[in-house]
Amino acid sequence: MTKKTNEKMGGNGWEPRIVAFLCNWCSYAGADLAGVSRIQYPPNVRVIRVPCSGRINPLFIVKALQTGADGVLVSGCHPGDCHYISGNLYARRKFALLKSLLEYVGIEPQRVHFSWVSAAEGPRFAEILGKVTDSVRSVGPASKMIKKFEEVA
């Protein structure tokens, strides 16, 4: 990170790392559109493309939090638009329960986000990322779920 960006981000050098699981048909294409449209959005996100939001095993999200993600974003097609007809609708039920369960055990709800973004919604994708990044940033670096190793020289 350059000194300038560091200052812009608050100066302490910490930047949230966010893992985004995006479905191939809508949200990933939406992210792509945001890119080719040259819309600026925070560089904190690491995108993992999945076939469908229905492909997302809730363990992906838990595992991301265990291995060091400060936040997770999951995004798929709007209800009714799923390439596989109903993958996102099954997924929605899982996500509702998982979000609630994580909050229940004391994980900050600001870390885990879900959204629907279509292939045409480039600006919306950028906007959501801004929101998600701010939200994760507001709760600081993750520590609760992260598996820590001893120092390795």
Binding site: R92, R93, F95
Partner: peptide, 18 residues
């Protein structure tokens, strides 16, 4: 079973941007 079914109008208030 609850997770092998869905309804179009299922709750999505948990979502950041539904």
């Amino acid at each position: 079973e609850a997770l092998s079914s869905f309804r179009m109008e299922d709750d999505q208030s948990f979502m950041t941007e539904p």
